[in-house]
């Protein structure tokens, strides 16, 4: 097994990292005993920067993000350290974490249809986070919600704020999720496969939107995906996971042009390239344990 390389120092803006994950391990107690889903991973994210976490399904990438938010299901055991703005997140009380969630760390999930409550308007669901963290009246929150929707380029926001999730297309729903995440101007955005459930054409739009908003707000971003093409577009640094373990990590350019780890190389080789000869056998990946 190749040595794990820590990411080269991306251009530092102001000293301490926004998020510093050290030796994070997550395991579950199952019927058959203990099962480790994330095994001793470490990374850091700075403001204005995006870290792409790549891996197949089951590699532990989603679990990592849930661990940061403290949203792991019952029965999960976490060790290691997650420092956010210098403060330890692991082991904190629900009450403490609730103040951070939605306010300083926001999350965008994969499937916007099931991630939105079908019984309430999108306006309400966007307003909720704002009201919970910033207070103020419903009227004010409504304005905030409409502005947020405009920001993610939903046309006719004034009217659509009273619509229900099922009345939007997939791409628009994801925009709403993004709007929801941004209302409180978070310092860290965690995007868990935000474009996976979308059409390819819509994917590009959403990615562009996310990048633009990140640049505007100066937030750091943890971008989780299995899609290398996507990673190459958005991430400053890449962290490759397989079966919960770090295979390789480093700046995007370096990983893509000079991959060191065999797994990484296979991942890259699996992505079809337009300048390649056809009929070249693609690498096959074994199933996930």
């Amino acid at each position: 097994m190749t040595q794990v390389r820590h990411p080269d120092e991306p251009a530092q803006t102001d000293g301490a990292p926004l998020l510093e994950v050290s030796n994070l391990s997550i395991s579950f107690d199952t019927r058959e005993g203990s099962s480790t889903v994330v095994d001793d991973i470490s990374f850091r994210i700075d403001r204005h920067k995006t870290l792409g976490v790549v891996g197949e399904s089951g590699s532990g990438k989603s679990m990592t993000s849930l661990a940061i938010m403290g949203l792991l299901p019952k029965g999960a055991r976490t060790t290691g350290s997650v420092l956010f703005k210098g403060e330890e997140l692991l082991g904190r009380s629900e009450k403490w974490l609730r103040k951070i969630r939605g306010d300083q760390i926001a999350m965008i999930f994969q499937d916007p249809l099931s991630s939105l409550n079908p019984y309430y308007t999108v306006g309400l669901q966007i307003e909720e986070a704002y009201l919970a963290h910033r207070g103020g009246g419903r009227k004010n929150a409504r304005t905030v919600a409409i502005d947020a929707m405009r920001r993610v380029r939903i046309t006719d926001a004034e009217r659509r704020v009273d619509d229900y999730p099922h009345q939007f297309s997939g791409g628009m729903r994801q925009r709403i999720m993004i709007a929801m995440a941004l209302t409180c101007e978070p310092d860290l955005i965690i995007a868990d496969e935000p474009t996976t459930a979308l059409d390819v054409t819509v994917q590009a739009q959403i990615l562009e939107l996310i990048s633009m908003l990140q640049a505007e707000t100066g937030a750091g971003m943890l971008f989780i995906t299995h899609d290398l093409a996507v990673v190459s577009q958005v991430a400053d640094a890449v962290h490759v996971l397989q079966n919960g373990q770090t295979m390789e990590a480093g700046p995007t350019e370096q990983i893509f042009s000079r991959p060191q780890d065999p797994y990484t190389r296979r991942l890259l080789a699996a992505v079809p390239r337009i300048d390649e000869v056809v009929d070249v056998p693609r690498p096959v990946f074994g199933g996930v344990q």
């Binding site: 579950f28 107690d29 199952t30 019927r31 099962s35 889903v37 299901p73 019952k74 029965g75 999960a76």
Partner: peptide, 12 residues
Amino acid sequence: SAAPLATGRSPR
């Protein structure tokens, strides 16, 4: 799945 359901262990 390997991760237990949030509702508790399913009957075995």
